[in-house]
């Protein structure tokens, strides 16, 4: 399976996990992001994700490379689904294998945080009372230089 994938199909977590299995790994940390119904008082009916697919896959690969620089024995796989997703559907699955558990926990955390910074994927919330493109997770971030920190080579 491709280690870095944007897909319109439902994600199979086991496929993502299988692609990081390694004889020298002592740990595999898995992060699964799912569609949440309630955000404060807002009730989500369903979500729509869109992506700039070729660039998004490149940026996922870049996250994998950043992880390998920080945790040299790590192997990373990330699948992100796009299209229409229902409550509790899997939006993203990340698996990282490392020789020791601490690195696997840290690297999988790093991967999801970095996805929210640099991977061109957008979420449109369809609430019970309207719809909205989500600008970023805090709703406050702007990029005066034209990009987040540390993305221009």
């Amino acid at each position: 399976m491709k280690k870095y994938k944007i897909t319109t199909e439902p994600i199979n977590n086991q496929d993502v996990i299988d692609s990081v299995v390694h004889q020298n790994a002592g740990a595999i940390s898995v992060f699964i992001g799912t569609v949440r119904e309630m955000t404060g008082q807002k009730q989500t009916k369903f979500l729509h994700y869109e992506a700039y697919v070729p660039m998004a896959e490149k940026q996922l690969e870049r996250i994998g490379m950043e992880i390998q620089e920080k945790w040299p024995s790590a192997i990373t796989a990330i699948s992100h689904r796009i299209g229409t997703l229902q409550i509790s559907d899997i939006a993203v699955a990340i698996a990282v294998s490392t020789p020791h558990r601490q690195d696997a926990f840290e690297a999988s955390r790093y991967a999801i945080e970095r996805i929210k910074e640099i991977v061109p994927i957008w979420k449109k919330e369809h609430y019970t009372d309207g719809e909205e493109w989500i600008g970023n997770q805090q709703g406050t971030k702007t990029y005066p230089a034209g990009h987040p920190e540390e993305v221009v080579k």
Binding site: I115, V119, P120, I121, W133, G135
Partner: peptide, 9 residues
């Protein structure tokens, strides 16, 4: 490409 602030994950 003009990429609005991203919201994946």
């Amino acid at each position: 490409a003009f990429i609005p602030p991203v919201s994946g994950g």
